[in-house]
Structures are given as C-alpha cells and as structure tokens.
C-alpha cells in the first residue's frame, strides 16, 4: 500500500466490508470489525485518562437549538451546522407533502424548525451544565458523541456524521493550558504507540467567509488550536486525528462559567476523531486487524 489517495482508502475499506457506503457522500455504515477497532481505541483512551478524575457524561446526538445560538457557532460555521426541521402541518398540508415527495418536488417549505439541532462538536451539550462557580481546580469531563458537519466529500476521512471522543477542561487559564499541553503529548504518544507516524502542528478551524479567514489567521497566530496529523489519504496533507483547542473565554463568557474565585473560566477541549484513528490504522497496517503487527495488537487487545 504505497499509494495514498482518498479513492484507494475508500475502495480498500469497501472491498474488505469495513464500511457500507450510501448514495450520500460522507455517510456510511460501519462493520463489526471496524467497530471493534473503534471500541479498542476508545478503551485505550480511557486507560490513558484513568487517573484524571474526569466525569463521564453522555448526551444524545441532538442539542438544544438555543445552546447552539448562544455558543456563537452560527457566527463562525453557518455552513457546517445541521438544524432539525419537522412537519407540523394539518391534513391538507400532509396531502400536499406526500404529493410533492411522490412527484420528486421540493418539500422543505412544508417543514418548520424544531427546538433541536445536530451536535456540531462533541463538547457543545456540556457548556450549559458548567454554568456557575467551578470547584477548586476546575472540572474535567469525558464524552463521546456523534457529531454532524455538513461537508459532503468523497474522502472517507471527511464524514458528515462521525464520533468524537472529547475531553473538556474548565478552570483558570493556567490550568487549562497546562492540561491541553499534557494531552497533546499524550495524543502524540498514543498514536505513535499504535505504529502511526503522528506529528503535531498548529491549525485553524474552517471558519466561514472572508471574516473567517481573519478568525483563522488569528487562531493560528495565537496558537489556540493544535492537531495531531497522520498520512491517511495523502502524504503531503496528512489527516488530523486529534485536535486540541484552547477556547479562552469563548464559552465561559456566554454560558456563565466561573472559576472558584469568580473570574470568567477558560475552557479547552481535545477530541479524537474516532473513525479517523481507525482508518489510519487500516491504512497503515492493512485492512485485516489479525494481521497487524504484534506490538500494535498488544496495545489495542491487551
């Protein structure tokens, strides 16, 4: 497997029955073998974090719409958000709906906005729950969520719906930055232990529009975002498997999160793109996990 390309990875995953494509780009099923590897990676992350005292939380894959509105997501990423709409009409409108669907005509205008949106990033459901004073030393939370990004692409590594294992740290700026730096080292170490040629680099988010270019440049200048990258579909443009984001007071301010001494708390999060880690393993070690190098198998199946 010397050639790196989106197509060769896609075809390899499909040929080995690891992903089950649909007619929509970035949306596919996962096989039992794929899921087993993903769960093993999740377990490995759990072992790495076992002494951190992180609180585990789980939210459904939908988020209160007002949380998204408060978070500023639509200012930065309107093009990635997914809002849930549903039918609330009467019998006549229902008949109209069915008729339009039957005739292949647009029917979006017969739906109306609900109170929920799809989770855009795994940490978003948490912030309203951190409101108020944090305990001394802050809080650390551990979550894994399905997230949605509207960015259809033929690259198997760029999905519309995927899982992110995410840790969030809220506390003083010093606590949060030290924690992020610790995890950057852990993330690099973990992926290298899995035989992946991981490297860290500063990064920026895909902010929308011309203003977004300014936000991205500012984010890079201030070194607020780091990624750990591994070649998966390209050697020149390696894929981000983890990202580490220092939000400063971006969430602390709107959600009223305070340190124990009453200052606006800072937050940071780190996320592992679970499917991407799994795909990097398949791309690097082959599509049959029982044939992976023993050292790698011993880490994942201890």
């Amino acid at each position: 497997m010397s050639e790196y390309s989106a197509k060769s990875l896609h075809d390899g995953l499909v040929a080995h029955g690891l992903i089950l494509p649909t007619t929509v780009q970035g949306v596919f099923g996962r096989s039992a073998v794929f899921e087993d590897v993903l769960q093993r990676v999740a377990d490995l992350i759990t072992r790495m974090a076992k002494d951190d005292g992180a609180e585990v939380m789980l939210f459904p894959p939908v988020l209160e719409r007002k949380t998204l509105e408060r978070s500023g997501y639509l200012e930065s990423f309107p093009h990635l958000a997914g809002s849930v709409f549903s039918f609330t009409g009467d019998d006549a409108q229902h008949k109209e709906l069915c008729s339009r669907v039957h005739h292949g005509e647009p029917w979006a205008d017969l739906q109306s906005m609900t109170d929920v949106v799809l989770i855009p990033a795994a940490c978003y459901p948490l912030y309203p729950h951190l409101a108020g004073r944090l305990p001394k030393g802050g809080r650390t939370v551990d979550m894994q969520h399905w997230v949605f990004r509207h960015e259809p692409s033929p690259e198997p590594t760029r999905m519309q719906s995927f899982r992110v294992r995410e840790f969030v740290r809220a506390g003083s700026p010093e606590e949060v930055v030290a924690w992020r730096d610790l995890w950057l080292e852990r993330g690099l170490g973990m992926l290298r232990k899995l035989g992946l040629p991981a490297e860290a680099d500063t990064a920026s988010d895909p902010f929308f529009g011309r203003g977004g270019r300014m936000l991205a440049a500012g984010q890079r200048e201030a070194k607020l975002k780091f990624e750990v990258l591994v070649p998966v579909i390209s050697r020149e443009n390696p894929t981000a498997l983890c990202s580490f984001n220092y939000h400063q007071d971006h969430f602390g301010q709107p959600f009223g999160i305070q340190t124990e001494d009453g200052k606006v708390a800072h937050t940071a999060c780190l996320g592992f793109g679970m499917e991407r880690v799994v795909m990097a393993l398949f791309r690097t070690h082959g599509y049959v996990p029982v044939e992976w190098p023993r050292a790698v198998r011993e880490v994942l199946w201890p």
């Binding site: 011309r210 203003g211 977004g212 300014m214 200048e221």
Partner: peptide
C-alpha cells in the same frame, strides 16, 4: 468576532476590500 464586524464595516465605509494578506489580527 467583533474585529470581523469592524473589518466588514470598514470595507463598506471606505469602499475597499481587504486582501487576504491584510486579514490578520
């Protein structure tokens, strides 16, 4: 985010478009 709004308001006030090299903090 406020700086983005300032940038956009400057563009419309002075009828200019900041090139990418100027879209910096």
């Amino acid at each position: 985010h406020a700086s983005v709004n300032v940038m956009l308001a400057l563009e419309s006030q002075f009828d200019v478009e900041f090139p990418d090299r100027m879209l910096r903090r």
